[in-house]
Design a protein around this nucleic acid. Structure first.
Length: 126
DNA sequence: CAGATGACTCCCA
DNA sequence: CTGGGAGCCATCT
């Protein structure tokens, strides 16, 4: 058995810790920056367990704004932080999707930049 | 090394 | 909306 946390996981945690309360990021976005697949990001967060205190895992959601976890009360945690949802219960990515850490901070740790995206995308509330 | 397994994402029916 | 299937990547057997 390997008891040590994989290096790529540590890099993922480092990034997730930069996501501000009230904002969210996607598995894919974190993966792009950390240099791995979105599935790997999910595996890294799953390895933390719901009691993780130093990593705001709840701020990482699916690309379409849905919550892919079950029984972890992720939606409640996000709502408590002020994250807005649309009528269908999906997180409104427009304006709440994190654009990534400070460029200098990221460059210093060799994290890849996140391709720019339009904050007005998928804006279809009401 | 081969296979199985995911908190993924995209595309199409 | 649902369901399949193809890529994808790291980890664990």
């Amino acid at each position: 058995m390997s008891n040590e946390v994989p290096a790529i996981y540590e890099r993922i945690y480092l990034l997730v810790r930069r996501i501000p309360a009230g904002m969210v990021s996607t598995y894919g976005d974190i993966g792009i920056m950390a240099g791995c697949d979105g599935r790997t990001v999910g595996a890294a967060l799953a390895a933390l367990g719901p009691e993780a205190r130093d990593v705001p895992w709840q701020r990482v959601i699916s690309r379409d704004g849905t919550i892919s976890t079950r029984g972890l009360r992720q939606e409640e945690l996000l709502a408590a932080e002020g994250v807005r949802f649309d009528r269908q219960g999906r997180v409104v990515l427009a304006g709440q999707r994190w654009h990534g850490p400070d460029p200098a901070w990221a460059a210093a740790r060799r994290f890849q930049p996140l391709p720019p995206f339009d904050d007005a995308e998928q804006l279809e509330l009401f």
